[in-house]
Computed example of a mutant assay.
Amino acid sequence: MNKIAIITGANTGLGLETTKAFAEKNIEVVMACRNESKAEKAKAEILKEIPKAQLKILPLDLSSLDAVRSFAEKFKSEYNCLDILVNNAGLMIPPYGKTKDGFELQFGINYLGHFLLTGLLLEPLKNAAEARVVSLSSLAHKWGDIYFEDLQFQNNYDKQKAYGQSKLACLMFAYELDRRLKAQQLSVKSLAAHPGLSRTNLFRHLTGMMKLLTPFVYPFTQSAKSGAQPQIKAALDEKLAGGDYLGPSGFQEYSGKPKVVDSNAISNDKEKAKRLWEISEELCNFQYL
């Protein structure tokens, strides 16, 4: 039996490279993408490179909780089990905006949509022999905190802080999910990964000082293919444990081969993680584990 994987944002950047790596290993990939025409182009590109690739496109708009629910229902109507869920899709430092449900864009898309998606797919994950959930974080998880008093940045929008919060939330979610899975003695493992400094289209919204610094940072960056290696390893390396966090092994974790890395104290704050989980359940109107 071939393994089944879902990769969100599978048509570009890290998601595209992860899809190719899975296809090479005969893993059937459900490409969960917002833009179907871009997904079709990516699928054609992969099939040219890997003719044996088993790919299916299922539309997913993470900026709408209803769309997340529809995606999960559609997947479950066609598949009984899910071996790998890669919560990869993301948005980086855009101008202020809100999702269809009124959440700040980065918090809603990068984190909340994936929080709900994972919960809705728990049954097919449990049906697989040893399923894995891989959540994509970032070095930016160190940029700030979880701002419980203003999660949606309605008072003072700072796009960098909001991005940092969303990626810290993804990492705290990965750790808390693993604790909850272990507490219920489930065989599903939750891991996290970050790509270091990878050259993807996430950088399109850079402005001001960050844009000016880009030429100086560029020598430390790596390709999307290299940046995808930590999440690929997190999904496939059988030696890894639930709760592991993967990133590049080079200088400051900017680039290099993937390895297990540490994260900051806030990301390991269990009380904060529990509070974030409970608030996320309220915001999504969905409880699990």
Rank of each mutant, 00 (worst) to 15 (best):
K225T: 08
H114I: 02
R179E: 08
K25W: 06
G102D: 13
C284I: 05
L14A: 05
D145E: 14
S37L: 15
V261A: 09
E24P: 06
A53Y: 01
D269S: 10
L117W: 06
R275G: 10
L125G: 08
A241D: 08
S137E: 13
S263C: 14
F103D: 03
D237F: 02
Q229I: 10
G256S: 12
N285M: 15
L82C: 03
K182N: 12
Y254P: 13
S64L: 10
L276H: 02
R199P: 06
A39R: 08
K48I: 07
S70R: 15
Q160G: 12
C170R: 01
C284T: 10
A39F: 01
A192K: 06
A128M: 06
P59H: 05
S263L: 04
I4C: 11
S280E: 02
S255W: 05
A224I: 14
G227N: 04
E123W: 08
Y245K: 03
K98T: 03
H141E: 13
V260Y: 00
R34E: 10
I27F: 02
L186R: 03
P124K: 10
A183L: 15
L121N: 10
F216C: 05
L65P: 01
E278D: 11
K274G: 08
Q165R: 07
K20S: 07
G196M: 05
E278Q: 13
Y147T: 00
T214P: 07
D61N: 15
N26V: 11
K56I: 10
G15E: 04
A32M: 08
F173S: 01
E78Q: 14
S135N: 11
E28S: 09
V30E: 00
P230N: 11
E176A: 12
E282Q: 13
M92C: 10
F115I: 00
A241H: 03
W143K: 10
D237W: 01
A131I: 04
E282M: 07
L62P: 05
Q154V: 00
T200D: 07
Q106R: 12
F75L: 09
Y157Q: 12
G13T: 05
K48G: 05
K3D: 03
T221Q: 12
G242N: 02
R34I: 13
L105D: 12
L246G: 00
K233A: 12
L213C: 10
S70H: 14
E149W: 02
F153N: 14
K41N: 13
Y175T: 08
G247T: 02
K25M: 13
I7Y: 03
A162R: 01
G242E: 03
L120R: 09
A129S: 11
F22V: 00
Y175F: 13
E282C: 06
V133S: 04
S37G: 04
G164T: 11
K126R: 07
N88E: 07
P258I: 06
L65R: 04
P230D: 05
I57E: 00
I4Y: 01
S187K: 13
T19R: 07
A67E: 07
G108D: 02
S64C: 09
P51Q: 08
Y79T: 01
A67H: 14
K74F: 00
K239Q: 15
K189I: 05
A224D: 02
K98C: 07
N11E: 04
A89E: 05
D262C: 06
K56N: 04
I27G: 10
H205I: 04
V68C: 14
E104R: 02
A72R: 12
S198Q: 13
G113K: 07
L112A: 06
D150L: 07
